[in-house]
């Protein structure tokens, strides 16, 4: 298993990975509460980006509605906890199941009716907006005034109920991101991952080589949706509140895909790197501009980053860095 995970990674890559792991594991002991929050949020966005990357980066399916899966995950686990006291460790299963189901519905409609490219992206937006307005009027979960999870500052960590210290949430986010990295690595090295890459590159050729395009694409959407919704469960219990206007908003859909784009679409490390560039950057900008109350500056810089990447470094930061550090494997396999 470990061998399979490390695969063809070279010695330098292994050392770099080991160092990164050490730093991330030791981080909570070295930073203050504020920095820990920034790191936790970076990891959270890394995880969302990794989940989105499965669809777009691997299978070439552009989703601009991924916020809906975050929202569904958060709301299902959150509501089951608020109304029935169901601990999130169980609630995450119905949450993922519902997200997977919605993903399957979108995929089925999109792929059966051959909705491709930008039109598919618009379909995902339409679904996300549809669901957002639905939750706005869904009074059982608070409607537009939101759903709140009782805050309960514990000093004892309770993973079953996801109540505990900031450190617990940090390690949880780290665990999610590492798990997503391992899963992505295994998938890419396996049969399904190869099918996805083929479809991403050329669907017609993929089909001529015996690949059932419909099934492979469905697998990508369902898996990506389920993974994203798990991030939503984390969202619910980390932030303790959710509003349809925020959690289903297209801005979240776009924010979560900026990491993979900036870090490197379709790469394993890109989404993590991108999130660790963007989240601290936005915090820094907020801190710098606090006195001047420039509320738009964060998004302005976000947008600028994407424009610069798209125009000058369309492959993203990671492939560029990896080449310079001598970390990359034979070119072209997108990892």
């Amino acid at each position: 298993m470990i061998g399979r995970l490390l695969g063809e990674a070279g010695t330098r890559a292994r050392i770099a990975l080991g160092l990164a792991a050490l730093v991330l594991l030791a981080a909570p002991a070295m930073v203050d509460d504020y920095l820990l929050t920034v790191l936790t949020q970076s990891l959270f966005f890394a995880y969302l980006g990794q989940s989105w990357n499965v669809m777009m980066g691997f299978a070439g399916l552009l989703s601009l509605g991924h916020a809906m899966f975050v929202g569904l995950g958060a709301y299902v686990a959150g509501a089951l906890f608020v109304h029935f006291g169901l601990p999130p460790v169980i609630g995450l299963f119905p949450a993922m199941a519902l997200a997977a189901l919605v993903g399957a519905a979108i995929g089925f409609l999109g792929f059966r009716f051959s909705i491709q490219g930008v039109y598919f992206a618009l379909l995902t937006i339409a679904f996300a907006e549809f669901i957002r307005i639905l939750f706005d009027h869904f009074t059982w979960v608070g409607g537009s005034s939101g759903l709140f999870i009782p805050v309960d500052n514990r000093t004892v960590n309770d993973l079953v109920h996801l109540r505990g210290t900031p450190e617990m949430f940090y390690y949880l986010a780290l665990g999610l991101s590492v798990a997503a990295l391992a899963l992505s690595r295994l998938l890419l090295a396996g049969r399904l991952g190869h099918r996805w890459l083929a479809i991403r590159e050329d669907q017609e050729a993929a089909q001529a080589l015996g690949i059932d395009v419909f099934r492979a694409k469905m697998a990508a959407v369902v898996l990506s949706a389920a993974m994203t919704s798990l991030g939503g469960v984390f969202y619910a219990f980390y932030f303790n509140n959710m509003f349809p206007e925020q959690i289903f908003n297209i801005n979240l859909s776009i924010e979560l895909l900026l990491g993979p784009i900036i870090g490197g679409l379709g790469t394993l490390i890109g989404p993590i790197l991108g999130a660790f560039v963007l989240t601290p950057l936005s915090e820094l900008l907020s801190a710098l501009t606090e006195r001047h109350a420039l509320i738009g500056i964060k998004h302005f810089v976000y947008g600028l980053c994407v424009v610069l990447i798209v125009v000058f470094l369309p492959g993203g930061l990671w492939p560029w860095i990896a080449r310079r550090l001598g970390l990359d494997r034979p070119p072209g396999d997108g990892t």
Partner: peptide
């Protein structure tokens, strides 16, 4: 690729809203 054009426009959109806000 189509998605890169789309992302460029989305990024411009983000910047324009931010400019309006400022």
């Amino acid at each position: 690729p189509e998605h890169m054009q789309f992302l460029l426009m989305a990024a411009l959109a983000i910047m324009l809203v931010a400019l309006c806000l400022m």
